[in-house]
């Protein structure tokens, strides 16, 4: 019981860690999502060479463990003269890594999308970014909606790795509490509860967003 008392006393550092986690997660996942959209737009427009390069880049990211990528940006780049603070390196890692996943997700949906809608748009005079933004992207998003929820939760969980490159997020806070007072069980259980809460909020938001697809009959096809 006393151990929980200690966790409660240390709540300020947990809360501050939680806010850092939420902050880096929100900024990171929004930018990653936008990056994914941008990459799919480029795939749509690009010639064969750029397309191949983008595909290779996406696959490289997806086969790389996130932690290694974060290491690379934070510890590896200084040897090339690029020195990033931990928070920035962590954010960039999240954005590029999860951007690749978002891109892959949208690309997959694009492949199975019937060609007719885009053809009708071209016949009406749509082209380029307007065609992508008005006709293609909305349909892709509705189709990948269940996957987006999953990806966001992976992204949230990957923020925990950033403790290793010294970002003071939630896991780092728990780690320092358990190290000082030696109460790993309670510290980590408390943190798991907080991750759960954030995940549940994400799930609810994604579920709520799902009504856009349902209203348009996308669950029927």
């Amino acid at each position: 019981m006393e151990n929980w008392q200690i966790v409660w006393e240390a709540r300020d550092s947990l809360i501050s860690g939680l806010f850092t986690t939420i902050e880096i997660f929100l900024i990171g996942s929004v930018l990653a999502f936008l990056l994914g959209c941008l990459v799919v737009y480029l795939l749509e427009q690009a010639g064969p060479w750029l397309r191949r390069a983008l595909r290779v880049a996406i696959d490289l990211m997806r086969t790389l463990p996130f932690l290694i990528f974060a290491y690379l940006l934070y510890y590896g780049l200084p040897s090339l003269g690029v020195r990033l603070d931990a928070w920035t390196a962590g954010l960039i890692a999240l954005v590029i890594y999860h951007g690749a996943y978002f891109a892959e997700m949208l690309r997959g949906a694009r492949l199975v999308m019937p060609a007719g809608g885009v053809e009708a748009a071209r016949a009406c005079g749509f082209h380029g970014f307007t065609l992508f933004r008005r006709i293609l992207l909305p349909q892709l998003l509705i189709r990948v909606r269940p996957l987006i929820g999953n990806q966001l939760i992976y992204c949230l969980k990957d923020t925990a790795f950033l403790t290793i490159i010294t970002v003071n997020e939630l896991t780092a806070a728990a780690n320092s509490i358990q190290a000082i007072y030696f109460i790993p069980m309670e510290a980590f259980v408390a943190v798991i509860g907080l991750y759960w809460m954030v995940s549940i909020v994400i799930e609810l938001l994604v579920k709520w967003a799902g009504r856009f697809g349902r209203k348009r009959g996308f669950d029927h096809v």
Partner: peptide, 24 residues
Amino acid sequence: SVRALASLRARTGMVFQSFNLWPH
């Protein structure tokens, strides 16, 4: 150019066998 082609296409209307309405 893609743009010039698109604006010429906009002067024709096409109706498809499979309708191709935009479902969203």
